[in-house]
Amino acid sequence: MFAVAAVGILVSMTLALARAFLGPTVYDRILAANTFGTKTVVLLAAIGFLTGRPDWIDLSLIYALINFIGTIAALKLFEFGTLAHTRGRDRE
């Protein structure tokens, strides 16, 4: 059961990676990285069940948080031009 899940998630990871390679805009790549992170989270949980060590869910938990931080940092850079300002766009 979990083997099927792992294979399916790996296939969709490959597809998301293709979108990250193709682009064309930077936002597409950020989107691809974000969905790739989600798939990694689920893949790790599936591998944990597959190998009989479901305690690896903790790892998924960390990834679910980490992935969000990276995405938000990238988007903040693009919207404000810097990571430090909160209203950089109309102050430059």
């Binding site: 989270v41 938990l61 992935n67 969000f68 995405t71 988007l75 693009f78 766009r89």
Partner: peptide, 27 residues
Amino acid sequence: RLLLVYGFLFFTSPIAAHALARAGLAG
């Protein structure tokens, strides 16, 4: 713990999508 994982995804995914759409439109 599984529900916590899903909870994080459930809340962070729409926020990331919203921020991405906003940044994309502005950019």
